[in-house]
Design a protein around this nucleic acid. Structure first.
Length: 823
RNA sequence: GCCGGAGUGGCGGAAUUGGCAGACGCACAGGACUUAAAAUCCUGCGGUUCGUGAGAAUCAUACCGGUUCGAUCCCGGUCUCCGGCACCA
C-alpha cells in the first residue's frame, strides 16, 4: 500500500473521464427542477490566483451537491475578455490584444480544468468574440432606439503631451501619471446610458432581494442616494431669468443669505455680464479648468468662489441675496444651483465666514448653550422655526411639508426627488472593447448601424501608440462608411464601450450561448433565469451588480428578459490574505495555485480553501493548514484502501448490536445530516468539512472495536465518499471505483439520513445552580420538564449542591438542562 | 464626517442566534512503532488557585453597564480594527 495517495494520476484520470463522458453538459429538462449556479467570470489576466480558486471552489461544491440532490444544474464559465491590460500589452510588447487575450484564456481554461471544476464548457462565452459582442451592439441599439442612449459633450481629462484621454485614476495631483504634464480638460462628445431613469426601481427592488447580503444592498442604496426635497425658483433681479435650485431643506428657505451656481452653470456668462465682476469670474473659471474631477470634489479642497455681480430674490421672504459661483457646487447634481443657508448648513457656513456673508438663523434649537447671534458652526439639528413669517413656531420637520405645499400652491416651486446616481458614461477612447455601433451623418445626425449589418467588427489594422484618441482612428478601413438612413457619406463612432457593459448580461447569454440568430431564445432564458445563486468578490457590490440589474430590467422592459432581477441569492466571498495582507506581486506574498496543485493536488487545494474560513470571510493562507488538509485526505484514502476489498461483497444492511455499533451508526447519520444542512442551507463549508473529519475520526475508532460489523463499515465508507465528493471529487471517484462501482459517483443520489438514528436512548443534561454548570447527569431522552426536575431532585448530589439553600425557582429546558435558582 | 461589518485560546475558526464557550483543524508537548528519522497511530493542550493524585474551585468571548433563572448571542455606552460613501445642497 502506498503511503500517500497518488493524486496527480488520479486527478488527471477523472478529469479526462468527466470530459469524455460529457458529464456536466446541461440541457433544459422541463420536468426537472432547475438550478442556475453562477460564479463571476474572470478577466483573462493570464494566471489563476487564489481568489479565483476560492470563488470557483465554492461554486463547484454547491454545483456538485445540487446535482446529486437531483437538480438540473446550469454551471457555466466564460471570459470578461475586453479590457485595458490587453491593450497595454500591445503598447509595451507589440503583441496584438487579440492574441494576448486568447493565449491567456487558453492558459486559464487549462488551469480551471486542472481544478476539477464541473462546468458545462459548451456554453463558454468570451466577451471579445464577435459572436458575443454582436449582441452587445444589438442591445446598445435597443437602448438608443428607446431613448436610453444619448451623446453629450463633457469635459474629460486630457494630457496635451501624450495626446490622450486619461481616466481619473491616471491623473495624480493634477498631472499625468505617465509623463508628468499638467492635465487639462477637453470637451469630448461621450455616450451615456440613462441609468437614472431606472434609479427608483433599482432602489425599491432591492427590497425584493432577501437573499442578498444587507451590506451589499446598503451600499447600493447609498450609491443610488435618493433625496427628497423641493425645487424652488429665485428670480434674478433686473431680469426675467429664473434660477431654479434644489433643496432638501425647504424649512430653511427664510434663512437664505446668498445663492451659488456651479461654475459650469449655463447662466454664468450671461449673469456675470455687466455686473462689474467679469474679470474675477473669468479668472476663477480658468483656475478650475485645470483641476481633475477628483480634486474638484475632494472634501479637503477649500471652498472658494466669486461674486457674479447680480442679485436674486427669495420668493418667500422677498429678500435680496447676492449670487456667487463656487467650487463646491456641482453641475450634475440637482439643478446645478443652490440656495445657501449658512446658519443651518456647514458648507454654506464655511463659505459665508470666509467671504463675510450674512448668517441668518431660522431654526431655534431651544437650547440655551447655543448662541444664535454668534454661531460657531451651522446648527443642523431639529428645532422650531423663527424669522419665517407665517411659518414661525412650526417644528422644522413639519415645516418641510407645509412650506413645500405653499410653494407649489403659489407656483414658486414643487416637490422633487434627486438621485446621487449619475447617467453612465460608457465611451472609452480605447481599442480593446466593443465598437459602439453608431454612425454620424452630416444630414441625419447619429444613426445606428442596421441590425443585419451587425456585428460592427473591430478592425485589425490599427496602431497602438498610446497616443491620440481611440486607436480605431488609425484604421484605414473602419471610419469611412455610408449613412444607413440616407446612403450619404458618413463616419463611424471610433470610441468603444466600457467593458462593464459586456459583463452586465452574460448570465443571460449562457442560457443560449451558441444562438447565432438571436441574443438568446426567450424560452431557454425563461427556463434558467433567474440565477439562483451568484458568487463573487465584494468589490463588485456596487458597479457590476448595479449595472447587471439595470440591464436585466431594461431587457425585461423591451420583452427580452423573462425576469426583472437577475440574481436571487448572492454570496460575496472574502479575500484571500497572506500574512494579514492581500496577496500582491509588489509585497511578494503571492501563493500560486499552480504550485499548490503540483505539490498537493487540486482536491487538497479545494478542501483547504473551503475549510480554513467561512466563504464570506477573509481567508488567511496557511501552508501548515494546507498540509493538514492533505493529511486528512490521506487519512481517508488509507481507511478506504484498507477496507475496500472486504467491503465489496459485504451486505448492505446491518443491525446495531454493540455500543460501538450504535455510536458508529449515530455518528454516520449525524454527519450526513450536518453536511447536508451545511452545504444546502447555509453555505457553511468549513463546518461541513469538520463534520466529515469527525466522521472519519469515529470510523478510525470503530474499526478498532470488537465485533465490528463489516456491513456497517460499508455503509459508513459509502456515505463518507458521497458526502466528501463535492469537496474532493477526484479522490472520491477513485475510492468509489475501488468499492467495485463501474459508474461515476456523480450518477449517485446524495445520501439520506435517518431521523430515528439521531434519537438517542439517553441524553446528558446539565444541572445549573444560578446559571452555573455544577453537574451533568444522564437521563432517558424525551423527558418533559417536570420529569427532568424530578430526576434532578432524585440525584444523589443534589442536596450537596444546594448546600442548605432553598430553591426559589427551577427552570428546565427539555433535553438540555435544569437550572435551580437559590438565594 | 456619514453608513455598514467585525472583535472568542499561541493561530484559523465552532457554538445553525438566549441554554454545557472553545467543535474541527493548525502549532506545541508526551507516548507507541522504528537502529534512527520521516510518515502513521494514541494521549494531552484557555488562564489562575488548591490538591501527590483522579480531581476541585474560580475567572474568561475587546471594555463598562443593563435586561434575564441563564448573555459570545438582546439593549445602552466606550475603545479598536476593517469595508463603503464622501462638498450630493
Amino acid at each position: 500500500m502506498a503511503d500517500k495517495y497518488q493524486f496527480d494520476g488520479i486527478e488527471k484520470k477523472w478529469q479526462r473521464h468527466w470530459e469524455e463522458a460529457g458529464l456536466f453538459k446541461t440541457r433544459e429538462i422541463p420536468d426537472a427542477e432547475k438550478y442556475y449556479l453562477l460564479e463571476m467570470f474572470p478577466y483573462p489576466s493570464g494566471k489563476l490566483h487564489m481568489g479565483h480558486v476560492r470563488n470557483y471552489s465554492i461554486g463547484d461544491v454547491a454545483a456538485r451537491y445540487l446535482r446529486m440532490k437531483g437538480k438540473n444544474v446550469l454551471h457555466p464559465m466564460g471570459w470578461d475578455s475586453f479590457g485595458l491590460p490587453a491593450e497595454n500589452a500591445a503598447i509595451q510588447n507589440g503583441i496584438h490584444p487579440n492574441l494576448w487575450t486568447h493565449d491567456n484564456m487558453r492558459e486559464m481554461r487549462t488551469q480551471l480544468k486542472r481544478l476539477g471544476l464541473s462546468y458545462d464548457w459548451d456554453r463558454e462565452v468570451a466577451t471579445c468574440e464577435a459572436e458575443y459582442y454582436k449582441w452587445m451592439q444589438w442591445i446598445f441599439i435597443r437602448f438608443f432606439k428607446n431613448g436610453m442612449a444619448y451623446k453629450k459633450k463633457n469635459p474629460v481629462n486630457w494630457c496635451p503631451s501624450c495626446e490622450t484621454v486619461l481616466a481619473n485614476e491616471q491623473v495624480v495631483d493634477g498631472v499625468c501619471d505617465r509623463c508628468g504634464s499638467t492635465v487639462g480638460k477637453k470637451d469630448l462628445e461621450q455616450w451615456y446610458l440613462k441609468i437614472t431613469d431606472y434609479a427608483e426601481r433599482l432602489l425599491s427592488d432591492l427590497d425584493k432581494l432577501p437573499g442578498w447580503p444587507s451590506k451589499v444592498k446598503t451600499m447600493q442604496k447609498n450609491w443610488i442616494g435618493r433625496s427628497t426635497g423641493a425645487e424652488v425658483d429665485f428670480t434674478v433681479e433686473g431680469t426675467d431669468k429664473k434660477l431654479r435650485i434644489f433643496t432638501t431643506r425647504p424649512d430653511t428657505l427664510f434663512g437664505v443669505t446668498y445663492m451659488v451656481l456651479a461654475p459650469e452653470h449655463p447662466f454664468v456668462k450671461e449673469l456675470a455680464a455687466g455686473g462689474g465682476q467679469e474679470a474675477q469670474v473669468d479668472a476663477f473659471l480658468r483656475k478650475l479648468q485645470y483641476l481633475s474631477d477628483i480634486d474638484r470634489t475632494a472634501t479637503t479642497l477649500e471652498k472658494e468662489g466669486v461674486f457674479l455681480g447680480c442679485y436674486a430674490v427669495n420668493p418667500l421672504s422677498g429678500g435680496r441675496v447676492p449670487v456667487y459661483i463656487a467650487n463646491y457646487v456641482l453641475m450634475d447634481y440637482g439643478t446645478g444651483a443652490i440656495m445657501a443657508v449658512p446658519a443651518h448648513d456647514q458648507r454654506d457656513f464655511d463659505f459665508a465666514v470666509k467671504y463675510g456673508l450674512d448668517i441668518l438663523p431660522v431654526i431655534d434649537p431651544e437650547c440655551p448653550e447655543i448662541d444664535l447671534s454668534n454661531l460657531k458652526e451651522a446648527f443642523v439639528a431639529e428645532g422650531k422655526l423663527i424669522h419665517s413669517g407665517r411659518f414661525d413656531g412650526l417644528k422644522n420637520r413639519e415645516a418641510i411639508g407645509q412650506i413645500t405645499d405653499f410653494l407649489e400652491k403659489e407656483g414658486f416651486g414643487k416637490k422633487s426627488v434627486n438621485f446621487r446616481l449619475r447617467d453612465w458614461l460608457i465611451s472609452r477612447q480605447r481599442y480593446w472593447g466593443t465598437p459602439i455601433p453608431m454612425i454620424h451623418c452630416e444630414t441625419c445626425g447619429w444613426v445606428p448601424e442596421k441590425e443585419e449589418n451587425l456585428p460592427v467588427l473591430l478592425p485589425t489594422d490599427v496602431k497602438f501608440t498610446g497616443k491620440g484618441e481611440s486607436p480605431l482612428h488609425t484604421s484605414g478601413t473602419f471610419r469611412e462608411t455610408v449613412c444607413p438612413l440616407c446612403g450619404g457619406p458618413a463616419v463611424r463612432e471610433i470610441d468603444t464601450m466600457d467593458t462593464f457593459l459586456d459583463s452586465s448580461w452574460y448570465f443571460l447569454r449562457y442560457c443560449d450561448a451558441r444562438n447565432g440568430a438571436r441574443i438568446f431564445e426567450k424560452d431557454k432564458a425563461k427556463y434558467w433565469m433567474p440565477v439562483d445563486q451568484y458568487i463573487g468578490g465584494v468589490e463588485h457590490a456596487i458597479l457590476h451588480l448595479l449595472y447587471a440589474r439595470f440591464f436585466t430590467k431594461f431587457l425585461y422592459d423591451i420583452g427580452e428578459s423573462p425576469v426583472e432581477e437577475p440574481f436571487t441569492r448572492l454570496l460575496t466571498q472574502g479575500m484571500v490574505l497572506k500574512d494579514g495582507k492581500k496577496m500582491s506581486k509588489s509585497i511578494g506574498n503571492v501563493v500560486s495555485p499552480e504550485e499548490i496543485i503540483r505539490k498537493y493536488g487540486a482536491d487538497t487545494a479545494r478542501l483547504f480553501i473551503l475549510f480554513a474560513s467561512p466563504p464570506e470571510k477573509e481567508l488567511e493562507w496557511s501552508d501548515a493548514g494546507v498540509e493538514g488538509s492533505y493529511r486528512f485526505l490521506n487519512r481517508v484514502y488509507r481507511l478506504v484502501d484498507e477496507w475496500a476489498p472486504a467491503l465489496r461483497d459485504a451486505p448492505d444492511s446491518y443491525a446495531s448490536v454493540t455500543a460501538a455499533d450504535r455510536e458508529m451508526h449515530y455518528a454516520l447519520h449525524y454527519a450526513v445530516r450536518k453536511v447536508s444542512d451545511d452545504i444546502g442551507d447555509r453555505f457553511s463549508f468549513n463546518t461541513a468539512i469538520s463534520a466529515i473529519m469527525e466522521l472519519v475520526n469515529a470510523m478510525y475508532k470503530y474499526k478498532e472495536a470488537e465485533n465490528r460489523s463489516t456491513a456497517l463499515m460499508k455503509n459508513a465508507v459509502t456515505n463518507l465518499i458521497l458526502i466528501l465528493s463535492p469537496f474532493a471529487p477526484h479522490l472520491c471517484e477513485e475510492m468509489w471505483q475501488s468499492l467495485g462501482h463501474g459508474q461515476s459517483l456523480y450518477g449517485e443520489r446524495w445520501p439520506d439520513y435517518d431521523e430515528n438514528a439521531l434519537i438517542l436512548d439517553t441524553v446528558e443534561i446539565v444541572i445549573q445552580i444560578n446559571g452555573k454548570v455544577k453537574e451533568r447527569i444522564r437521563v432517558q431522552s424525551g423527558l418533559d420538564q417536570d420529569a427532568m426536575i424530578a430526576k434532578v431532585k432524585e440525584d444523589a448530589r443534589f442536596e450537596q449542591l444546594l448546600a442548605g439553600r432553598m430553591p426559589v425557582k427551577i427552570v428546565a429546558v427539555p433535553g438540555k438542562l435544569v437550572n435551580v435558582v437559590v438565594q
